[in-house]
Write a protein that binds this DNA or RNA. Structure first.
Length: 850
RNA sequence: GCCCGGGUGGCGGAAUUGGUAGACGCAGGGGACUCAAAAUCCCCCGACAGGCGACUGUCUUGCGGGUUCGAGUCCCGCCCUGGGCACCA
């Protein structure tokens, strides 16, 4: 497998520079022995928590994408340390979950044996990469000392009514034999194995995240996160402002008579008025609502269906139930059935038919809609299929032709000739809408809502697309949900002192297609006595979602040494919220949203003094390889071990940061690493041959201070590629004209490179006679006076065309610049007389208009 | 369909946010060193046209318009591409 990554076998010959393997081994041992990377959590000054997304320890080992993420974070953390912060950079392992379990099944080794092995391999690789990680605070989500508190969090939510159980249609993967979250279903297929997903009904535990939708959305306005991540969360939460409108079902017997069907059995029910609530974002189009549609699962469907329509409705509902959730969403051909009943449009008082159709989803809004085929594409399609009336109540105002006259005439027609719905809202006006005719959509929206509300038919409402979070998994490799079912007491939470509910060792943990967790086969484990009454009871046999494990791990890191509390209040106060979090945007919605939710709940429960866990979040980009996506099947996956072996961790790290803008990602090219290695080799050579007598050249020192400024500005902005480029540029100046560099010219460069290439920096720092780590030496400051150029170069344009450049003293004004420019023949030959106008941009250019 | 990114030399990518387009690096060419090769060091390197010549001119940031003294950068209309969401009323 790994051989495939050697596309072009690189030259085996050793470059003439430094020897990374001995230096890196030496310093990694030294850091460990001297505790260089350990954080003084109680005594340090200016605490800075630099968090990276913990990896799931796959058997394949560390992915280069992980290292790209971690290195970027490490540089940020090291830079903060060099700026005088006490930096905490912990790392752990997200080792529960389907990934690990499926792999264990595949290779036939129990995850209890497999996971520690993988973790050891990961830790080895991570240490080799030279990260400033404090390994004393390592954690694994599979450790009972950790998941005890994952279960505790579940109970906290349960206590607050935020965890509940309901029978729900779930996505079922027939191959992995498990329920999938909607997010794990990609285009109707399981995101892991690609199998077609089906629908099943199971009792599931949910977290009421929808209750927090408003806050989760609102806080996005002030947290310092990548804009792309915030946008993704906003879309995911999906707020829409609209109205809930009530339609009264038309008196039953009146309809029954007309339909000549005897309805004696249900006639009593119709004595009670039946109301249907619909959600709409376009209450202004109510005059065009020509029918209602309910989701097939809507509870009112039974009541509304007439005997005559019963059979057809039942068949349709049965079909809808059989279909999996996903294909129901993917299949866009409109189908539906008439219930036989009518409702009254509260705006027009006209009776309109009530249909059921699977394009209306029970999970969103009220599970019912008013259909306005004239102004909604889905309703339009549906109306076309079933020949339902299409009424246009909004039209563009045509210049000159008066108000939508053509629409008026067309509406008199039985079959409106317009072949599409009119969905514009801008520059659109109402027609056929009684007293509202002529209003713009913008004006009509509040007016009609208010008018309906006055008569008790509507209220303004906010709707969210976000669904509650289904956290049960019918799987083995996760923390058992700490609930006990007792026949007498019902659902009983496991008392806190009985936590953790340990996951038992189960030899055969393979899920089967009963939809029941493997734990349900272990009677010795699930048969317990009720904690409340002592009667025979049964444990919940589902485990919780991996995303719950990862929704709070950052709270645990500082407190890993406590067993009697999930997170110590004093340490939490001191270290949280996280100062800087860097990770991939693939977690923009799930992990990051769930973490925010859990933090908010814990805050509301009085456990945390803050409600947002990550003050600052930045999404890094993706790395591709030689222009193509990396994948196992392509055989083009970068194995970090091989590259670190060949080039050294310092070179590898620096190259990863140099190959493209960190927040956008880049293209990993084997050939290009050479350049970074050459740069470090030159640094090494220059450092070893420095002279200590005399002083550095002013010209070189000027460039040095400009470089210090550039790197100091770039690092906090994560602009690592240009920071490296700036140091390379300085290297050129340093080594120009075969001069021997002075120690004052090199020493600060060693500090500047140290976040990128920590080992070589430590080695050189030591060779320069320091006995403490370069990471305790602070950051070089730049002197603006030293960095300033005496001369400035002005671009000289004539009529906007570049005709030359001119070097003038820094404080030269327009007059001086002009005469200097005109002194150049290359310029003056284009300037016949006095320029008509002169544009002077200090420090930039001079543009002469002639 | 909707929402975000992104289109710059042979390649990866820079560009002070409207001011000398192509920094830095790779690859390539030439030279020095060497018996030779590798490594190392130095020089050249967007395209086209003219000249023996250190040069001179023209063009050039996906396409078409516009604003401006000046546009890779701003505005309008397209094309291509990567990612996310998708019957959400």
């Amino acid at each position: 497998m790994t051989e495939a990554t050697h596309r072009t076998e690189p030259p085996a010959a050793e470059p003439a520079g430094y020897d990374p393997s001995s230096i890196e081994r030496k310093w990694q041992a030294r850091w460990e022995q001297q505790g260089t990377n350990n954080t003084d959590l109680t005594g340090g000054v200016r605490p800075f928590y630099a968090l990276m997304m913990f990896p799931y320890p796959s058997a394949e080992g560390l992915h280069v994408g992980n290292l790209f993420a971690f290195t970027g974070n490490d540089i940020y953390g090291r830079f903060q340390r060099l700026q005088g912060h006490t930096v905490f950079e912990p790392l752990g392992f997200d080792a529960f979950g389907i990934h690990s379990e499926n792999y264990a099944l595949k290779v036939g080794i129990h995850p209890e044996q497999l996971i520690p092995r993988n973790i050891d391999n990961f830790r080895r690789q991570l240490k080799r990469a030279g990260l400033m990680v404090d390994w004393h605070h390592e954690l694994s989500t599979t450790d009972p000392r950790y998941y005890k508190w994952t279960q505790w969090i579940f109970l906290e939510l349960y206590k607050r009514g935020l965890a509940y159980k309901k029978r729900a249609a779930v996505n079922w993967c027939p191959n992995d034999k498990t329920v999938l979250a909607n997010e794990q279903v990609i285009a109707g297929a399981c995101e892991r194995c690609g199998a077609q997903v089906e629908q099943r009904f199971l009792e599931q535990w949910f977290f009421r995240i929808t209750e927090y939708a408003g806050r989760l959305l609102q806080n996005l306005d002030w947290i310092d996160w990548s804009e792309s991540t915030k946008t993704a969360q906003r879309n995911w939460i999906g707020r829409s402002q609209g109205a809930e409108i009530t339609f009264r079902v038309q008196d039953y017997w009146e309809f029954a008579g007309a339909a000549t069907v005897a309805q004696t059995s249900t006639s009593e029910m119709t004595a009670q008025p039946v109301d249907i609530r619909v959600f709409t974002t376009r209450p202004d189009t109510i005059f065009g609502a020509t029918y209602l549609v309910l989701a097939p699962e809507h509870p009112l469907v039974d009541v509304l269906t007439t005997d005559q329509q019963r059979e057809e409705v039942d068949v349709y509902r049965a079909n809808a139930a059989k279909q999996d959730i996903v294909s129901r969403k993917v299949n866009r051909e409109k189908t539906g059935v008439f219930t036989g009943s009518f409702a009254i449009n509260p705006a027009t008082d006209a009776p309109i038919p009530i249909w059921i159709a699977d394009y209306v989803l029970m999970e969103y809004g009220t599970g019912a809609i008013m259909a306005v085929p004239g102004h909604d594409e889905r309703d339009f399609e549906f109306a076309k299929v079933f020949g339902l009336p299409i009424v246009y109540v909004v039209a563009a105002r045509h210049p000159g032709a008066g108000t939508a006259a053509h629409v008026d005439s067309q509406n008199r027609d039985e079959h409106p000739p317009l072949e599409e719905p009119y969905t514009e809202t801008e520059h659109a006006h109402l027609v056929h809408s009684a007293q509202f005719t002529g209003l713009s959509v913008e004006e009509a929206l509040p007016a009609i809502t208010a008018w309906l509300a006055e008569h008790g038919h509507a209220k303004s409402i906010m709707n969210y697309r976000l669904h509650d979070w289904c956290i049960s998994r019918q799987r083995y490799w996760g923390p058992p949900i700490p609930i006990i079912y007792c026949e007498r007491c019902g659902t009983v939470p496991v008392p806190e002192q009985d936590l953790p509910v340990e996951l038992p060792y189960v030899e055969n943990f393979k899920p089967d297609d009963t939809g029941i967790s493997p734990l349900a086969r272990v009677k010795s484990w699930y048969a317990v006595s009720c904690p409340a009454c002592g009667a025979a009871a049964r444990r919940e046999t589902d485990v919780s979602d991996t995303f719950l494990d990862s929704a709070w791990y950052f709270l645990r890191y500082p407190s890993t040494h406590f067993d009697d509390r999930p997170f110590d209040p004093a340490l939490t106060e001191r270290w949280l919220p996280v100062n800087s979090y860097i990770g991939g945007n693939e977690h923009a919605v799930l992990h990051l949203l769930y973490s925010r939710f859990v933090t908010m709940v814990l805050h509301d429960a009085g456990h945390l003094p803050f409600e947002e866990p990550f003050t600052k979040f930045r999404a890094h980009g993706m790395i591709i390889r030689e222009g193509a996506k990396m994948s196992k099947s392509r055989g083009n996956v970068v194995n970090p071990d091989e590259y670190i072996e060949r080039w050294g961790a310092d070179t590898f790290r620096t190259y990863l940061m140099f190959l493209g803008p960190y927040e956008e990602g880049g293209d990993f090219r084997d050939q290009s690493i050479t350049g970074v290695r050459r740069f470090l080799d030159r640094l090494w050579t220059s450092a070893l041959e420095v002279r200590r007598d005399g002083s550095g050249s002013p010209e070189v020192l000027r460039k040095l201070h400009q470089t210090i400024r550039k790197v100091t500005e770039d690092l906090p902005r994560l602009q690592y590629n240009t920071a490296v480029a700036a140091m390379m540029e300085y290297m050129k100046v340093l080594r120009a004209r075969e001069r021997t560099p002075h120690i004052d010219e090199v020493l600060p460069l060693v500090q500047l490179i140290s976040p990128f290439a920590p080992h070589i920096a430590e080695e050189l720092w030591e060779r320069f006679g320091h006995d403490r780590s370069v990471f305790d030496a602070g950051w070089p400051s730049f002197d603006p006076a030293l960095a300033a150029e005496e001369l400035m170069t002005l671009a000289v344009q004539v009529n906007g065309k570049l005709r030359g450049t001119v070097q003038v003293p820094r404080d030269t004004g327009q007059e001086g610049a002009l005469s200097a420019a005109l002194a150049q023949p290359a310029v003056s030959r284009f300037v016949p007389g006095a320029p008509k106008k002169v544009i002077f941009v200090p420090g930039r250019l001079l543009n002469l208009l002639v």
